[in-house]
């Protein structure tokens, strides 16, 4: 455990808290992509099957349970809550997210640390997480204005993987750890946010409302 890793996980948790606060207090999920949230449920379920096979950890186990519970809660709100579901921008959430799942599954089938059920699903979850933000970014681009909570949510979600990159650099030098699969996927995942980061920081510096061109 190092500071980058701890900060990354807390940032990830914070992003989810921001999203839940937005949904619960404003009773609105405007600007949030249900497709991205669906993908996160799939990511967490396929990655955290090891909850059943690995010994409990005081740090990892609670995080895994929280990520599973909160992602399912968010999807539940967006689909079934009688007020929240009416605020969902269904017509703008146009990304064909099913087309992300098959390529990630094929990639996981061929590129994995070990050809076992758990390891292939783990690889699948790493690949899918890398691209799961795409429907959300497409939805934001079609939004004329993005509320602060939504902007902060996406920023924290991007910052989390960027901090993992620092963690991996640290671990490479301090612990001699080399793990190509999460590194490359994590690099792709962070790179997808580059455009968003640029406009987020620009709007923050100019004290303007966030808008993606």
């Amino acid at each position: 455990m190092n500071a980058f890793r701890l900060l990354a996980d807390l940032t990830h948790l914070l992003s989810i808290i921001i999203l839940l606060v937005k949904i619960r207090t404003t009773k609105s999920c405007a600007g949030i992509s249900l497709k991205t949230q669906d993908l996160y449920v799939l990511v967490f379920i396929s990655r955290y099957l090891d909850l059943f096979t690995r010994p409990l950890s005081l740090y990892n186990t609670p995080f895994k349970l929280v990520f599973l519970a909160t992602s399912i809660t968010i999807v539940y709100y967006m689909r079934y809550h009688k007020v929240v579901k009416q605020t969902y921008n269904k017509d703008s959430d146009t990304f064909k997210h099913y087309f992300l799942i098959l390529p990630c599954a094929v990639l996981a089938f061929f590129i994995n640390p070990k050809f076992t059920f758990i390891e292939v699903l783990w690889s699948f979850s790493i690949y899918l997480e890398a691209v799961a933000i795409l429907p959300q970014l497409v939805l934001l681009q079609s939004s004329s204005n993005i509320d602060n909570l939504t902007g902060n949510y996406v920023f924290m979600l991007g910052a989390y993987r960027a901090l993992y990159l620092l963690n991996w650099i640290y671990r490479f030098f301090a612990e001699d750890v080399v793990r190509w699969i999460p590194w490359i996927a994590g690099l792709v995942q962070t790179a997808l946010y580059a455009d968003f980061f640029y406009y987020y920081i620009k709007s923050w510096r100019n004290n303007e409302r966030l808008k993606l061109p």
Partner: peptide, 10 residues
């Protein structure tokens, strides 16, 4: 350098 997956991360 280990070749096992990074299972100690989230």
């Amino acid at each position: 350098a280990g070749s096992s997956p990074l299972k100690d991360e989230l």
